[in-house]
């Protein structure tokens, strides 16, 4: 792999931190963000994931503009046609253009995945850091709630509530987010417990900086790598859960479409009309693969030594 170049970047920053930039007069000291970005981009698989994700997102949002059909307006002249120049992904039994439907479903999955990930990671960061920093009864209460939510089978509860959020996207996103932040919150709490004893945190504390401000300025920035990786992983968890719930009719519901509802509808005819299954399923798998590759790449970029035998 690219160990030599990573080593080089690593040493450069380590030295420049102490001795200043004198030794490296011709090159500016790269910021931490740039270093991470470079370490990320030199990994072939991570780069592939990033490019794949960009292509998929572009396809999902630009595709419907170029496409000739709308997902809600069936073409009554062509039922169950195979992919052709007019219907790029073919049509289903009601004449719905599968390209338009797949792109619509993909938009849903992407939006839901991103929103849920941001929501869940923010929740985890705030709750975990608050519990860890303030300790005492705040810690006890918050961690008890975290443990309770871990016992409740989330998939079940979201499904039970499905009659209530009938296609209310906001509520659905909040519910999904509510159930995937707990484990990260516990990790953030553990890290905060050690961070709060550091000199710079104590210094800020004795200078009279308030608790919430210390968490925002000193604790959370130090957990940035963990949180960024967690958010990426959560995108894939959220997309999986959303499509899974929609597959059973507990998530996005007709007349709207999701990749999950499309795959469910194609389930029985997957053998005879394979295009009905292959296009939505293929899009979903590629989307998850792209997000997972990016997550893996970020992990290696933030912590190059992890998972490598020394």
């Amino acid at each position: 792999m690219t160990v030599p170049s990573q080593e080089l970047i690593g040493t450069v920053t380590a030295e420049s931190g102490i001795e200043g930039t004198a030794a490296l007069d011709e090159t500016a000291v790269p910021s931490r963000g740039r270093i991470i970005f470079r370490r990320f981009i030199v990994q072939k698989s991570a780069l592939f994931g990033l490019v794949l994700l960009v292509v998929l997102v572009l396809l999902a949002y630009v595709g419907p503009i170029i496409g000739k059909w709308d997902y809600s307006q069936p073409d009554y002249n062509s039922f169950l046609v195979t992919p052709n120049s007019s219907h790029w992904f073919g049509t289903d039994g009601t004449g719905t253009d599968l390209f338009a439907a797949t792109m619509r479903g993909a938009q849903k999955s992407i939006i839901i995945g991103l929103l849920v990930a941001v929501l869940a990671t923010s929740m985890a960061a705030i709750v975990g850091a608050t519990a860890g920093y303030f300790g005492r009864w705040i810690d006890t209460v918050l961690m008890w709630i975290v443990n309770l939510l871990l016992v409740i089978p989330s998939f079940l509860i979201i499904a039970i509530l499905s009659p209530r959020y009938h296609n209310n996207l906001t509520l659905f996103v909040v519910l999904l987010g509510m159930f995937i932040w707990q484990i990260t919150a516990r990790i953030v709490r553990g890290q905060t417990l050690s961070l709060r004893e550091r000199e710079y945190v104590l210094a800020a504390k004795y200078m009279g900086v308030s608790g919430p401000r210390i968490i925002a300025r000193h604790i959370l920035p130090n957990l940035a790598s963990l949180l960024i990786i967690d958010a990426t992983v959560n995108v894939s968890v959220a997309v999986l859960t959303e499509t899974g719930l929609s597959f059973f009719g507990f998530g996005v519901q007709p007349p709207d479409v999701s990749l999950g509802t499309l795959i469910e509808a194609a389930q029985t005819s997957a053998t005879t009309q394979p295009w009905l299954f292959l296009f939505p399923a293929g899009f979903l798998v590629l989307l998850l693969l792209a997000v997972n590759l990016i997550g893996q790449g970020l992990r290696d970029a933030f912590d190059p030594s992890a998972g490598v035998a020394v």
């Binding site: 597959f247 795959i263 469910e264 997957a270 053998t271 979903l284 798998v285 998850l288 997972n292």
Partner: peptide, 22 residues
């Protein structure tokens, strides 16, 4: 393993059914 992890269970199951039918 990474690829299989990116395939939801319902996609794997349906693909296997299609394969078995073939």
């Amino acid at each position: 393993a990474f690829f299989i992890l990116s395939c939801p269970v319902f996609v794997i199951a349906i693909l296997l059914q299609v394969g078995a039918t073939r």
